[in-house]
Amino acid sequence: MVDDDPSVRKGLSRLLRSEGFGVVTFSSGEEFLREPGLCGIRCFVIDIQLGGMSGLEVARTLKEREIRTPCIFITAHDEAMTRDALLAAGSPTCLRKPFDADEFLRNLRLALAGPG
């Protein structure tokens, strides 16, 4: 999970743990991309508005590196991203904070069960 907001990182990690998932968190895209062990990870949850490079840029970078791990975008911004922009970045899924835990988990499972 990449999110520059500590509240979100803590809350979402706890939710995932409560469902039995293991979670690794990063506070910026740059930090995340420097991580060597990304291959073992089944799903990326990426915040769109990060301090430095944006979540979409991070996703594009992953795509360039041909890492095809499924992504779920989250955002605190009210204006929703266009579907095209999201797809271009690699994932149609974007949840607006604050989101419901069940909805998030449903999307997560969908992603895990997906073509990847």
């Binding site: 409560s18 989250i74 604050p98």
Partner: peptide, 25 residues
């Protein structure tokens, strides 16, 4: 307004996820 909503949404998201995680635990 937009950025303030953004600013508020972060803790709200934290609250909601924490609450639901707590329920699950």
């Amino acid at each position: 307004g937009a950025s303030l909503a953004h600013e508020l949404n972060q803790p709200l998201a934290g609250i909601l996820t924490n609450a639901q995680a707590a329920t699950r635990f």
